[in-house]
Design a protein around this nucleic acid. Sequence first.
DNA 1: TGCACTCTGAGATATTATATCATCGAGCGA
DNA 2: TCGCTCGATGATATAATATCTCAGAGTGCA
Lengths: 154, 154
Amino acid sequence: MTQTATRETALKEAEAACLRRGATLTPLRRQVLELVLDADAPVGAYALLDRLKATRPGAAPPTVYRALDFLLEQGLIHKLERLNAYIGCTDAGHGHAHDHHHPHQFLICRTCGATTEITDHGVAHAIEAAARRAGFALAEATVEIEGTCARCLA
Amino acid sequence: MTQTATRETALKEAEAACLRRGATLTPLRRQVLELVLDADAPVGAYALLDRLKATRPGAAPPTVYRALDFLLEQGLIHKLERLNAYIGCTDAGHGHAHDHHHPHQFLICRTCGATTEITDHGVAHAIEAAARRAGFALAEATVEIEGTCARCLA
DNA sequence: TGCACTCTGAGATATTATATCATCGAGCGA
DNA sequence: TCGCTCGATGATATAATATCTCAGAGTGCA
Ligand SMILES: [Zn+2]
Ligand SMILES: [Zn+2]
Ligand SMILES: [Zn+2]
Ligand SMILES: [Zn+2]
């Protein structure tokens, strides 16, 4: 399965997921999603804006931020808080497509920048347990693990 | 033990910790640390700058960011990535004072803003295990748990 | 004295994100 | 058809966060 194929699959699933929820993946939003998916690493909003301007000269910061907000809301992308950058959700459509906000974690390589989304239930459960012990009602957890990826270690 | 007393204790321990490592907690750095500790919630860099200007009119963004960098480096404060704000390390000096960067997590209340640092070994171990399974060499993990605190739930 | 080093001052600039108001078009009922 | 509302986008300005760069002051040391 080629990269392009997985991208097309992801886009189709995104359309479907939005439809199910009564949300609209407009051409603009779809284009921003494509730009995020095309990048091979997390992308900043202004990098997206630059690329967007190639085909949409009038684009401005709110253009891209509004699209990003929508995509975040729909769970189609995630924000990496440490990097102020955005990345496509790897799990969208693979198991819990209808979950807007599934628990997830990121592995961020400081050497090559590669960023991998994982869904580790051990981590998720440990966080739930810690919150429960503190009498804290968990809404969402940000987990960003920085270090060196397997490729860079080899 | 009063709040002021714990603050003074924290400052003394900070001095001691810096000394041990051959780092210098200069008056400026100490003052920024005091400002962070005095706040009853995470503080933004520009809020610190405003307060700093009261006694140090020439202060500029680099003044506060340089101090924050030092304090982060020394493990005396932490940054909350979701909030772009800084908070004093609760654990400095209580158990692993000499650890520059101990594993830690935050519970952030979306209702009242209260932010609590915890050191949950279950979470820490789960993250280590997840990284290991991915062949990833962990350097540092950001864990920020958002939701509603016990007080706001009551 | 001369030099290296750390810290701070000062100004400019870069980067990330939001506020506000106007416009456009689809949907829809009167 | 008209007028209304609503969601989406265009367009401009501004806010909030963070960094770059050069200069000067102090300290310790050869
Ligand atoms: Zn995901
Ligand atoms: Zn790597
Ligand atoms: Zn801490
Ligand atoms: Zn609360």
